[in-house]
Design a binder for these strands. Sequence first.
DNA 1: TGATGTGAAGCGGTTCACAGCG
DNA 2: CGCTGTGAACCGCTTCACATCA
Lengths: 218, 218
Amino acid sequence: MSHSGQRRISESTVRRLSVYLRFLRELTRQGRELVSSRQLARGCGTTPAQVRKDLSLFGSFGKRGRGYTVDELRRTLEGILGLGRRWRVALVGVGKIGSALLGYQDLARRGFDIAAAFDSDPAKTGQVMSGVQVYPAERLTEVVRMQQIELGIIATPPESAQTVADELVGAGVGAILNFAPVEIDVPESVTVRTMDVALELEGLSFMLTSGDRMPSRE
Amino acid sequence: MSHSGQRRISESTVRRLSVYLRFLRELTRQGRELVSSRQLARGCGTTPAQVRKDLSLFGSFGKRGRGYTVDELRRTLEGILGLGRRWRVALVGVGKIGSALLGYQDLARRGFDIAAAFDSDPAKTGQVMSGVQVYPAERLTEVVRMQQIELGIIATPPESAQTVADELVGAGVGAILNFAPVEIDVPESVTVRTMDVALELEGLSFMLTSGDRMPSRE
DNA sequence: TGATGTGAAGCGGTTCACAGCG
DNA sequence: CGCTGTGAACCGCTTCACATCA
């Protein structure tokens, strides 16, 4: 065993760990006790070898000949991913996407609480939406600092995204989920992940166009 | 030169092409004429060598000593990605996320028209939301076939996602963007991309937890 | 001269195959 | 015997370095 220190974990591994966890939680609901790397792979769209390799980067959690204990592995993964606690999140931009996120219960279910929302439109600020106070954009730094918020979600128009990111970082946020369709510059110490719906659709467009695939509409 | 046939293009390359395109469109708005691989890289969060390699997979589009013509490269990328046309999209599930997507103008701006929406809740069906007709779920196959829709978006609860996917595929859809937090099984000929907001946040949680990073809140 | 296009090297993630152990 | 854990092989993406050409 040699998995103590900060070995480099790839982004793809981390993403798969999250997928395993999501699946394990489903198995827990179903009351399943044990699960093999083969079953895990099937449910998560990967291979048994990949599952075992991913897990082996962190330790030995299975029982040879039997598989993994669902509940134990679930807790282990929660630990690895840093989900043994709840995270406070700041949401900036309460437009279409922002308000959808405010009402999206899956976030809280999985440990992420939107602690404060912000918008530059006075018509939206001052009220409580889906149980979350909406502050004017000017108060971002103050409120984020005060509430010790560590994660930010940007759901503003692309023009404002960089400015907002700078403010979030300045206020102490360590990672940002960006829904604005632009790349954002942050210091190395901060992580940004951009989710661009149209960009994903463009990827699908490429598959259908250039594809080895011929959609058979009989 | 050797970029005629169906060489294998990696998912990461396709994603970057989309990012380049997004950036080029911004440069077009700014009236920029030329752009170098270095500038492209800066604006897209990658390296000049990567930019040139990505583009070289499809041809030679630059002028040595000068760079790339913004407008020309933009059109080239649109062609490669299959964006020289508009795509009709079916949206299934008009809850929080679904209705946000209905009103999200960036999709139409980038070539994706939601041609029909579906929901199983009778309270939502029959009306027109954001200019899109909302049909009862039972009519999915019929309407998707009739309108020759090729792309599907799933924004239902996770329990219904697989069933909906099967119906979409059965109705002739060739690719699916899935917002339900579950992996989905489809025939090999169909592409699925899953966008799970909480899963992305979990990735950020890992970075902050296990990170080489120490968020300095002074 | 300056930036592209690209073979070749480098590197890291994935797959394989099997030893190890319940 | 079955499934995990893992070194080694493999493969493909990224990076490098430079020939090439406007």
